[in-house]
Design a protein around this nucleic acid. Structure first.
Lengths: 334, 334
DNA sequence: CTGAAAGCGCTTACAG
DNA sequence: CTGAAAGCGCTTACAG
């Protein structure tokens, strides 16, 4: 039904191999022959069948991207950047939403769609390094974020510790002394939550401010989690003059709840987040946050993965580049 | 290198066809034989090669989704719903970002990735019906939104006119008489912008309120467009007591600009949007808007497309279902 | 520079 | 119920 290379070969009066040579930009081909083939392709409206090409070449030119949910702005923005970076290198991205929980994450990682990809980009939330290595199989894999740390895995790191310390230092410099943290559990030391909490503690220590576990509120990393956590904090009677949401969604939820309760931001309570999603700039008041270098993360991750894909036989030289971060000071914590 | 059906057949001591029968759940197969095959699959860790299956069967079980950019919340949320709906029916979604402008949209639509899909979901922004039909080729196609209207195309409709009228009527019922519109050009009648503007006009007429073109502000459908349009409006000296952003991004941009300029929302100026993106609920003040039935749109679009894919030979019975909308009244326009 | 042939890993008539 | 064979549309050694 569809036009094939055979049809093109027949119309152009050449062999299949010659058509293939033209399509794949083989150098040594007579200009006249090449032109005849191109004309035939044009005339017939031939389009290469990527499925057949993949089966034969063993390469799909697709990379898988496993993340929790595209409706979460940070992931959506990162996915958009990743798709652009991949596209620029001739790859396409197949997104797989893992939803919540380790079970789903594992299933997503092992899904049949893997046979359609040359390698995998993965933003882990629940699985640890061992589980990831077991579930991911043997195709090239690059992790994003810093939920797991393991010297055997390629990953692009966010400077969670240093960036969180920078946010905290900024709040301290603004005179805040009772800075609540949303999105961590007192004692966390690993994962984005733990590393950011540690950065927060380090900045407090640097400034000689005491750490108070009562200011650390565990809640879901979403807007409603931030609102709910803030409500709990307000109801508890614990005093605080700033809120540091460990991601922007938390901070925006906090902002909402504080304003609903008639608290003035930033006069009474400063608010800061982490991620610099597009929305942060247009919140009212606009949100002070830290940009973890999203475009760079996307770029490096794609680059790393494609390097692994195209140099399968090269010795596995694990790389863990860090993206540069940048503090974005806005109205919510000037 | 990878385990194939042949390996499974050898280990199980059956023919290739028998393995295929087991994998494809062919009914009439001796239980003992089936078990032997399943054991072999387990033992070898066999995974079906989807590329080979696609090439042979002529079916990829993937649907393409062409939209402007995943970093735009409305599209990201819609894409997430579409992926879930498709997944539930055994299909995977390949997202293609078209960026801005008709040229890019056309290129995205015609891209090579089409050979990897069984059909296409498309959210048009710039192309008209003729251009779409020409560019899309002959695979099943379903449009989302209501940018184009054409009886020859399958599409899931948003009730732009009625929903925009409902928002406007709500603002009028709140006593507003000078309602600015962001995101349309005076005189627009087609596309989401035109249809929503017409709905706005109809509601004004119903209430006996005069239409004033000076209140219609043309700007990009993004947060910064809304902020910039609102700034222009404020600077122009035109009086207004409400702003209707034709999507939520515009309304949120307007909200930001109004608050920056010290205007009280909703006391002085009410603000309403269109889309009900997640963010609307957590803005401060929270945003009154209309939910166009995102989940239903995703569901119906996927259903329609898969129906076309799986009943290719059925006569083309064009369908254009409408999703139900719902007004969400929040603080910005109570 | 170009051709004839094999084969990637499946599914699908066709037999039995 | 099961087997032997063909073929989906490409790419890739192998010749010449």
């Amino acid at each position: 039904m569809a036009v094939t290379m055979n049809d093109v070969a027949r119309v152009a009066g050449v062999s299949l191999k010659t058509v293939s040579n033209v399509i794949n930009n083989y150098e040594f081909i007579r200009p006249a022959t090449k032109q005849r083939v191109l004309d035939a392709i044009d005339e017939l409206g031939y389009e290469a069948n990527l499925t057949a090409r993949s089966l034969r070449s063993g390469k799909t030119s697709m990379i898988g991207l496993v993340l929790a949910d595209l409706s979460i702005p940070y992931y959506a923005e990162l996915a958009s950047d990743i798709m652009k970076a991949a596209w620029a290198r001739g790859y396409r991205v197949l997104v797989e939403q893992s939803g919540n929980g380790p079970g789903h994450e594992k299933a997503a990682l092992q899904g049949q769609f893997r046979t359609l990809t040359d390698g995998l980009l993965f933003i882990p939330l629940a699985l640890d390094a061992e589980q990831i290595m077991e579930a991911a199989g043997k195709k090239p894999l690059v992790l994003l974020g810093e939920y797991v740390q393991d010297p055997r895995l390629n990953m692009v790191l966010i400077q969670n510790h240093r960036a969180a310390a920078a946010v905290t230092a900024h709040l301290l410099a603004g005179g805040r002394r009772r800075i609540a943290v949303l999105g961590a559990h007192d004692g966390d030391t690993t994962g984005s939550n733990g590393l950011r909490l540690e950065g927060y503690k380090a900045a407090l220590a640097d400034a000689g401010v005491a750490y108070d576990p009562a200011l650390v509120i565990d809640c879901d990393w979403r807007r409603d989690g931030g609102a709910e956590g803030t409500a709990r904090l307000l109801d508890s009677g614990v005093e605080f003059d700033a809120v540091f949401g460990l991601n922007d969604a938390l901070a925006l939820g906090a902002l909402h709840e504080l304003l609903v309760r008639g608290r003035k931001v930033p006069e009474e309570i400063a608010v800061a987040g982490f991620d610099d999603i597009d929305e942060a700039k247009f919140a009212s008041p606009s949100l002070t946050t830290v940009a973890p270098g999203r475009a760079e993360i996307a770029e490096r991750a794609v680059e790393l993965l494609i390097n692994r894909i195209e140099n399968k036989d090269a010795p596995l030289h694990v790389q863990q580049p860090q993206a540069a971060f940048e503090l974005r000071i806005r109205q919510s914590a000037p």
